[in-house]
Design a protein around this nucleic acid. Structure first.
Lengths: 330, 330
DNA sequence: ATGAAAGCGCTAACAC
DNA sequence: GTGTTAGCGCTTTCAT
């Protein structure tokens, strides 16, 4: 790819490489006419400076690798946007890797990012054992990862608090028969979100368990619809639903309406994430909003720490506390 | 940032740089025990190979710079996702620059990207004159840009066809009083979308012009609401609205409902872009869908051309034809 | 199995 | 204003 070098331009222009460099970079100490001529020749040759050589020389510039599960899923663009912004404030470049919605692609994508970036941030599915083995020494900030921080940076989301707010809201508007639609990654284990919600429900003396919940693939509205249908069959009495995220919540609302239930009068729905799209559906979706701006700030700050203090000293884990936004209730 | 080098590791391990290199890169011709020891030391030192030095040596690897106007606007994530995918197929890395919704940031962002990338793709607001001056020799593929291709790559969207489909649909379902909500960048000029729509409306013998259109800031639902209110005041008889994009269309629908009009029975709304969110609102939004997958494929292919044939030979402009998707009508 | 030397393309420092 | 020298950190010969 990188064929024509500064030397080629210099030779053709009959000047030294240094002069070409000056022309290209708009430095001083160069005659206007020489500059023009050199630039002209460079243009003709299709010369582009090698960013590697330049980077090697200059030596500055941090590149952040951002791993996303799927940019086409509504949650990630906002996260990415905020990370881009926070990283930009540091003058960092950002390379993005997208697993395109398939966890099995994750390691490949990480492999690519690892070669390009100085530090990584991402919502990573792999265990820290795997990460440690595959990417020894690579500074990484894990978002919402259950790993005991083994030298990794980490920012977590306080699901306990988030779900407490969700449950309390439903209780407050008089709901007593509350179902859960959980989003599950590889099928089996209940998510931390579900666990947190159930815990709070029990604190209110309500019944929880498999009879009151349905599992769904987390990123499809349709699977939210299916999950709600399932829930409705098992517990027709239901008057409130807490969902793993907004996608599923929107699906649940759709299915409820299709089933002739009034939302939120008959059945109130609460989502999680606080996506903007929740404000556009009918009725507007109440949700527990994750502050991605704050998440991004913390993640980047932690990335800075990893870069600054390679021998990670230890740290208290960073936590983002989501906040309920009531867009429509009762 | 890049402090500890291969030489440091070598010295501390009492071996040569090459041996370290072999260990790091899992090459053969190295004793198992040496390898372990070297890796251990590298880990302790927090050594990370310089991607610049490596890149300079290896010399492969293409990096694509993607300029986005605003990743937090619903249109761009899908575009970005598709570009990421197309670029990934070529084994390219992608750095993303985001202007965060401000055109005036564009040049700065481009400046950053230009130093990182071998070729750029983006929906660029600046004129080709400016681009040529600021980034001489940088291969760029402009999306939906009105520039006479001055050596730039380019992929356009066929608004004529798209708006023909939109207008014809409204006509077909019996609408004869059709307004336009236009999205405008810096205020003044009617967008190509509006022009295309008006042209087709006139071909159907309908009245067009400023009396039948309202301008809105393109990326805010609320400005769609305001624009519709304005339209409704001027033309209460209105029974169809064509919008610059889906955001504005969703705003228009909201305002129509608020004004007591039935959508689509009283007033039918057509959007542009074909965002997925259009399928979630009530009623589902009929829209002219841009195939971002195809757009991305063409853009990347054109980027390849620019990289392969530096002296751009000439080209027919690449065009994506959007397609009407009727999600709810009459 | 390991080391020495060369050089990728560029720019900072210093001559001239 | 322009050229020369040196070297960024790495990998690729080629010796040993």
């Amino acid at each position: 790819m990188q064929r024509v070098t500064i030397a080629d331009v210099a030779k053709l222009a009959g000047v030294s490489k240094q002069t070409v460099s000056r022309a290209i970079n708009n430095k001083g100490d160069i005659g206007e006419s020489t500059k023009e001529r050199v630039l002209e020749i460079a243009r003709n040759l299709g010369y582009r400076p090698s960013r590697f050589a330049r980077g090697l020389r200059i030596g500055e510039s941090v590149t952040l690798g951002l791993l996303l599960f799927d940019l086409s899923i509504p949650y990630y663009p906002d996260l990415a946007s905020q990370i881009l912004q926070s990283a930009g404030k540091q003058g960092w470049n950002v390379v993005i890797g997208d697993a395109q919605g398939e966890w099995r692609r994750e390691l490949d994508v990480l492999q690519v990012l690892a070669r390009q970036a100085d530090v990584l941030i991402g919502q990573v599915g792999s265990s820290d054992t795997v990460l440690l083995r595959e990417f020894p020494g690579l500074p990484m900030v894990l978002l919402d990862h259950d790993a005991g921080s083994s030298g990794f940076g980490s920012v977590c989301i306080d699901f306990i608090s988030g779900m407490r707010q969700a449950v309390d809201h439903l209780i407050k508007i008089g709901r007593r028969h509350i179902g859960i639609i959980d989003g599950v990654k590889w099928d089996r284990p209940p998510s931390p979100r579900r666990i947190a919600a159930e815990q709070r429900l029990r604190e209110h003396g309500l019944v929880t368990g498999d009879e009151w919940s349905a599992a769904a693939s987390p990123h499809a509205v349709t699977s939210g619809e299916a999950a709600l249908a399932e829930l409705l069959t098992r517990q027709p009495i239901i008057d409130g639903v807490i969902c793993f995220n907004d996608q599923l919540a929107i699906g649940a609302m759709r299915e409820l309406k299709r089933a002739g239930r009034n939302v939120p009068a008959d059945v109130a729905v609460v989502g999680f994430d606080g996506l903007r799209v929740g404000g556009l559906v009918e009725p507007a979706l109440t949700s527990v909003r994750i502050d991605n701006r704050q998440l991004a700030e913390l993640a980047v700050r932690d990335a800075i720490r990893l870069l600054t203090v390679p021998k990670a000293p230890q740290k208290e884990s960073l936590v983002v506390t989501p906040k309920l936004i009531v867009r429509s209730s009762a």
